[in-house]
Amino acid sequence: MNKNIKLIIFIVLALLQLLVPSQVILSRELALRYGQEYKFRVEPLDPYDPFRGRYLYINVEDTEITVNNDQQYHTKQTIYVLIENDTSGFARFSGITLTPPESDTYIKTKITYITYEHYDGDGSSGKPTVHFQVPFERYYMPENDAPSAEKIYNEKISQDSTEDVYVSVKIYKGTAVLDKLFIGDKTIEEYMKL
């Protein structure tokens, strides 16, 4: 290959390499700035991922929806999950569609598996329940803080605390960004400084 052509290809490649993370940054920044805030109840765990330091595993409640049999669903299918607030001010998943909804309050995700109301010998019947992934499963923390954060959470659970444990998520046109982890009215970082 000609040296100049190689240089040009390399520059294009370098730009592409920068573009991929930049695109991620842009979409998340938009969500953080213009997205609507929702609160989801969670239970954290603490696995270890050598590539990304430490994080809390965010296990959002009720990530499944029972649907009517009018549509064919299958695993790995891309779906749009609608979100609405309940009376206590927490968000819940209210329905799914296969095409992007008109409202802005939805997340784009994939079906993990499907269960059915009844199971008999030669097949399943009844209404299918669609289980889906939630695109905010990880809350990253400094290495030293993650274990104690988990401990605080577990204590809160065992004491039958009245304080809610939840995450605030900003949602903008299908993109969801996990913003903060709360225990009661304090973020986990503030709580740990106490």
């Binding site: 920068l18 991929v20 991620v24 940054i25 990304r52 939630v134 695109p135 990253y140 960004v177």
Partner: peptide
């Protein structure tokens, strides 16, 4: 560095993998 760039950004924005 390419792999690191993508995964570090994911960490900054709490993106699930």
């Amino acid at each position: 560095a390419v792999g690191a760039g993508i995964s570090l950004i994911s960490q900054t924005y709490n993106i699930h993998g």
